[in-house]
Design a protein around this nucleic acid. Structure first.
Lengths: 224, 224
DNA sequence: ACTGCTGGATTGCAGCTGCATTGCGAGAAT
DNA sequence: ATTCTCGCAATGCAGCTGCAATCCAGCAGT
């Protein structure tokens, strides 16, 4: 479980970190609103523990900003401001729980567990072709639910082709997708990978095949 | 929004009912555990407000019963028992929120709104793969009922892999799950943990193994 | 048709990358 | 103080990967 802790008070922050660590959670720490926003955008967390009083503003303003970007990470607000009005504000801004300081660490943990029980549904981006399913997010290929392990380069070829299933992919464009710019590949390495991929697709009987178009490039096609 | 209110004290119950009604919520009322179970089974609610002290037992026992039947309705416990220990118990029994009486009605409402925003599904508390059982709540692993003690990092690896049993987990994603951002790990520390975990899984003969996919990541697979 | 040509397809091979494993020392936990 | 854990480095190894040699199919010109 990955937690983002947003707390500017160093002592409390480090105490919480070690405590969370002891409970087998991986915890990143941000000490300001700005830092927190950066972290939250760059990484993906299972929950955010959020202090309100931060040097550069009210931590609570982070929540609507996240939600606006489609970030549904559960947020628990930890703050000394424990009036009913504050709590109502916090919750209505999109926080999922609101715990007033001082709090018992055991309660924080229990509430955190409760939050983590309800996972933010993540949308897997998948492309289908025939019986082939390519999960772009997890870089994984499967045929009829069965995982199929592919080497990196072959996976890149397949990805580039499946993104344009049934349509042509120029040879140069494939080269770029597979090798990028870094390598100076002069030989027929691409053909090699295509060939090997073809064989694996054929063995898997997944209902797709790769056609070469002389002088132009390749295309992946569903078999009739 | 349909709410099930479980509360045996007539005054409070009727006060809550009218208040909820005023906020456009449809509210059924049960005065006992038995009645509550019947309602919950027969109807479908968006949330349950649950008192603990009921004439025929502790209201909290309702929650595991619901969950066992696959009923994931969010539950908020309302009770005079507000010790930290009570709260922890309540939340760990599967309640989603825990509010000690007396409370401000506005806070109840705000918490209710927060509850209703959350995703409906609850994540399984235990994950199984082969003979392996991982209890996410208690953070412990067991094989055929036998507890198996794992160091923190290895447990994190196993957790990340078991959450996607049989499917790929990218190396980078594993890194994130096991180390936060804070650590600058440049070496093959991850490989080390995987290796050690592999050995323990093999020794335990638990019917699962970890496959590495060169250039991509790892996957945990049940042995045929 | 025949033949030479061209560009892709395939396959064996060798280098190399990236993973697996192990031992070790420092630091944390008890 | 002792034990456990963790990150690291060294070593070994398997598979990927690029290359080249070979093979094959389509094409054009005679």
């Amino acid at each position: 479980m990955r937690i983002l802790l947003v707390e500017d008070e160093p002592e409390l922050a480090s105490a919480l970190r070690t405590a969370l660590k002891r409970h087998d959670m991986v915890c990143d720490h941000a000490a300001s609103l700005l830092e927190a926003a950066d972290y939250a955008d760059a990484e993906s967390y299972d929950a955010i523990l959020l202090d309100r009083q931060l040097p550069d503003g009210d931590g609570l303003t982070l929540v609507p900003r996240l939600r606006a970007r489609g970030n549904a990470t559960p947020v628990m607000v930890l703050t000394a401001r424990g009036d009913t009005a504050d709590k109502v504000d916090g919750l209505d801004m999109g926080a999922d729980d609101y715990l007033a300081k001082p709090f018992a660490f055991e309660e924080l943990l229990a509430r955190l567990r409760a939050l983590l029980r309800r996972p933010a549904a993540i949308q897997a981006q998948v492309i289908r072709a025939g019986e082939l399913v390519l999960d772009l997010g997890h870089r994984e290929v499967s045929v009829r639910g069965e995982a199929m392990s592919l080497p990196r380069r072959e996976l890149l070829v397949l990805e580039a082709l499946m993104k344009r299933t049934g349509r042509m992919v120029q040879r140069a464009s494939l080269m770029e997708a597979v090798f990028g710019l870094d390598d100076e590949i002069q030989s027929n390495a691409l053909d090699t990978h295509v060939s090997r991929l073809r064989r694996k697709l054929a063995d898997a009987a997944c209902g797709v095949e790769i056609n070469g178009v002389r002088g132009v490039g390749y295309l992946l096609r569903e078999i009739a």
